[in-house]
Design a binder for these strands. Structure first.
Lengths: 210, 210
DNA sequence: AGGCCACCATACGGGGCAGTATGGTAGTCT
DNA sequence: AGACTACCATACTGCCCCGTATGGTGGCCT
């Protein structure tokens, strides 16, 4: 019966280069969180169900409930991980830029290219009815909008103007995400896309005239 | 132990003539479609389930399956009805306006005030994975974007500029809907809201300088 | 008046997922 | 080597919804 003859005896038993099969995954909580985020990016939070997720990882839910108390616990952990990574990305790559106009421009350009965190953001926008999602998305969105408003203020706009412009820019961001990633409007080719981004930058970042 | 003494034995136990109870609704297919749209506006398409909907209308699903072959059949019918009404609204109130700048401005202002159709639009944006929703939303969105592009062309923009500006304006529309209706960002007071709309109009509609 | 039919209730079977209980196995430490 | 523990499988209950089958009732027509 036992077919593990070729398995345990070969000294250190290297990681089975061949038979693929089960691979003995041995998952950790972080693996589940990562898999959940992947699933959110691909199919939305609604697709994050325990049993399908377990099937995807070639285990059963008996495994899952060892690592997490419930589905919601997994979701909260995954969201926490994602939010943390998102904030760090902003602080590392954009915030150091001194000139506010350059900072805004780079923020727009960066956002238009880096995808993963925005794909998840877009997917989560469709599940705001979930109690764990709402507060995370609200924090994150307000933080970003305020970040924009501060930059616009530094460009010389009044408080109200800066706030309005920040809202407008962020709305355009959110809407574009939804139109492209969820609604799947006919995908623009690379050239057209760059043209659009340039248009947005020109339209939403006040010109040099102070 | 058994407390059902007062329950089963009372002869025929008439249907309670006094408590007004059911009101004898006698529903039609249109009633179901309307109720479905109401539910979508309130809680999204996912909440449109046969049994809950029937409870809401004080009937059982026995009634539903007389009018519709399936849940999806109801959804398709409701979406068709909604799309039709949306198109008619545009054609009746905005399209007659001659001057393109005035037409655009009125389109923005109207959109910012009339709510029902946009609430449904926003809710449906969260359920684009549903096969019946995707095509409707795609048609409707493309139609609106092209409508904007035509108006921008009439204002003197080039083809590409007009298309980009239309995409931007529509993205701002979609994003603002999501931020306000789904994410429920702190509701702006009426004055602030009007200020925002004015800001958007000023930023997205080219000034008189041709 | 009697019947037809639109509309509805009741009851049932089935499926998918959440969560629990409990037993199994493989790696590690001593 | 034996025990301990981390990780996983199996099997079960329960809930909620979809869809079907079938029987009931009231308004309308002739």
């Amino acid at each position: 019966m036992h077919v593990l003859a070729k398995q345990g005896c070969a000294g250190m038993a290297e990681v089975e280069p061949k038979t693929e099969r089960a691979e003995r995954p041995r998952l950790s909580a972080a693996d589940w969180e990562q898999a959940a985020l992947d699933l959110i990016a691909e199919q939305g939070l609604a697709a994050v169900a325990v049993e399908p997720l377990a099937r995807r990882l070639n285990v059963t839910k008996g495994s899952f409930y060892w690592h997490f108390a419930s589905r919601d616990a997994l979701i909260e952990a995954a969201l926490k991980r994602w939010e943390q990574a998102d904030v760090e990305g902003l602080m590392r790559h954009v915030d150091p830029i001194e000139d506010p106009r350059e900072r805004l421009t780079q923020l727009f350009l960066r956002t238009s290219h880096e995808m993963r965190t925005h794909v998840i953001y877009s997917a989560l926008l469709n599940t705001l009815d979930h109690p764990a999602v709402q507060p995370v998305m609200q924090r994150l969105s307000l933080r970003r909008i305020n970040y924009l408003a501060v930059a616009y203020r530094a460009l010389g706009l009044s408080r109200r103007e800066a706030m309005h412009r920040a809202r407008l820019a962020y709305s355009a961001y959110v809407g574009f995400l939804q139109l492209m990633l969820q609604l799947k409007l006919p995908r623009m080719d690379s050239e057209d896309f760059e043209g659009y981004v340039a248009h947005v930058v020109a339209a939403l970042i006040p010109s040099a005239a102070v």
